[in-house]
C-alpha cells in the first residue's frame, strides 16, 4: 500500500465506477466459476484422461485474477463487462445442459 493519491480515481463519474465494481466483482466471480466448470467440456483430456478435470480446478485462481485485472484495467468497464459476460455465457452452456440432465435423472 504505497498510496499517496485519493481512494477514488479522479475525473471519473459515479456511473463508470459503479460499472467497474459490478464487472470486476460479482460478474468476474460468476464468470470465472462458469469458465472453470465449462472448461471440462472443451479442454483436451490428455494422455491420462484427467487434464480436462484437473486444469480447470488448478487454474481457477488464475482465471479469476486474469478476468479481474482485465475488468480493472480496461478503459471502458462496459466493454470489459460485455467480453466477460460473453465468456461466461459460452462456458455456461455445457454447465446448464449438465444440470438439466442431472435434474431429469433425479426426477
Amino acid at each position: 500500500m504505497s498510496a499517496n493519491t485519493p481512494d477514488t480515481p479522479a475525473g471519473q463519474g459515479r456511473g463508470p465506477l459503479l460499472a467497474r465494481w459490478i464487472v470486476a466483482g460479482p460478474l468476474v466471480l460468476v464468470a470465472s466459476i462458469l469458465v472453470m466448470a465449462g472448461m471440462t467440456a472443451w479442454f483436451p483430456e490428455g494422455a491420462a484422461g484427467i487434464n480436462h478435470l484437473a486444469f480447470p480446478i488448478l487454474l481457477f485462481p488464475a482465471i479469476w485474477a486474469l478476468l479481474f485485472f482485465y475488468a480493472l484495467l480496461d478503459a471502458r468497464p462496459w466493454r470489459a463487462g460485455a467480453v466477460i459476460l460473453a465468456l461466461a455465457v459460452a462456458n455456461g452452456v455445457p454447465v446448464v445442459s449438465a444440470v438439466q440432465t442431472m435434474m431429469q435423472g433425479a426426477g
Binding site: 472453470m36 466448470a37 480447470p56 481457477f60 440432465t101 442431472m102
Partner: peptide
C-alpha cells in the same frame, strides 16, 4: 468448489 462443479459438468454430479 472446484470438484463439485467439475463433477456436475463431467459426471452428472
Amino acid at each position: 468448489l472446484g470438484l463439485p462443479l467439475v463433477a456436475i459438468t463431467a459426471f452428472g454430479g
